[in-house]
Design a protein around this nucleic acid. Structure first.
Lengths: 156, 156
DNA sequence: CCAGATGATGATACAATGTCTCAGTATCGT
DNA sequence: ACGATACTGAGACATTGTATCATCATCTGG
């Protein structure tokens, strides 16, 4: 499940994220590199505690994991995701702020939901409600997992 | 801020919710009545811990508050809402499952977001993603608070 | 209307998930 | 290299939610 090419891509991606941190005036530390690499290697959604469980044995303290995740979110490299009663993060493509989360394999597909945004704006305008932020997330099965699974789920 | 008429309406509303619980084969207890009344009196979003803080001095135990909220959600009288890093509940009009939450006064406006739903479905179909659940919430300022406030916030 | 079955409560322990503090350390610009 | 300062680690602490279990209240059938 971890191909060479993908891993190389992840390494460079991690480097890019660290570079972005540097551009923001934040320092490059060994611990941040470990956290960032772990995040991009996940290639999907993750939780802070999951990271802690994974990285604490590797010498990164709980507080550091939380702080790093918080910093990455503030810079805009991570997006918070909420789903049912779980909540976590995912790496955030620039400009994209919505995601399809596959419940089976955990892959996160960023989507351009501009049609949805337009509908939201129309709705808010009609109700004279000033929408400052909105939260829009999807969960289900990606194409690959549908094929592998034979659509077991119900459709509410 | 608590007008007589509004309070009367809330009382009957609480009664209706308790009746719904009875219809589901659940028992009518003094504690549940207190919790339900507190919820409808809030007329907006609330958190479980907020309820605990309010009701524990009035003799309702923490576990009971959590259990009651859980039951109300299961029956469909409450909807979970997630916003930024807070998460809570709001009373759920039947059939409505999306809300505009005013960040200032806390009022929750249920909306019929069928246009948005259509856009979501089109998007998912185009990506061959089987969407089982989606989460759609809005936060901002209601019309009244816009007027009272003079739109202070930034617009991300 | 009473009594039994069973659903609900309370007190508390426990678990999970974050946050804070502060002394020591590493990083970066000069 | 040096100094300012941002960062880290360890653990205490805070918040949020769950499990246990003895006791009690509510509903139902006789």
């Amino acid at each position: 499940m971890v191909r060479k090419t993908a891993h190389s891509a992840n390494v460079s991606r991690a480097g890019w994220m660290l570079q972005r941190l540097a551009e923001e005036g934040l320092r490059h530390t060994e611990q941040r590199a470990i956290v960032v690499q772990a995040i991009v290697d996940k290639r999907g959604a993750f939780t802070a505690e999951g990271l802690v469980d994974e990285l604490q044995p590797r010498g990164v303290a709980r507080a550091t994991v939380y702080r790093t995740v918080e910093v990455l979110e503030r810079v805009g490299l991570l997006a918070r995701i909420h789903l049912d009663n779980r909540h976590g993060y995912t790496v955030c493509e620039e400009g994209h702020h919505h995601h399809l989360l596959c419940e089976r394999c955990g892959v996160v597909i960023p989507v351009d939901a501009s049609d949805v945004e337009v509908a939201i704006r129309r709705l808010a305008d009609a109700l004279r409600f000033q929408v400052d932020t909105h939260l829009l997330e999807f969960a289900g099965l990606c194409e690959a997992c549908q094929a592998r699974n034979g659509r077991t789920g119900s459709a509410p």
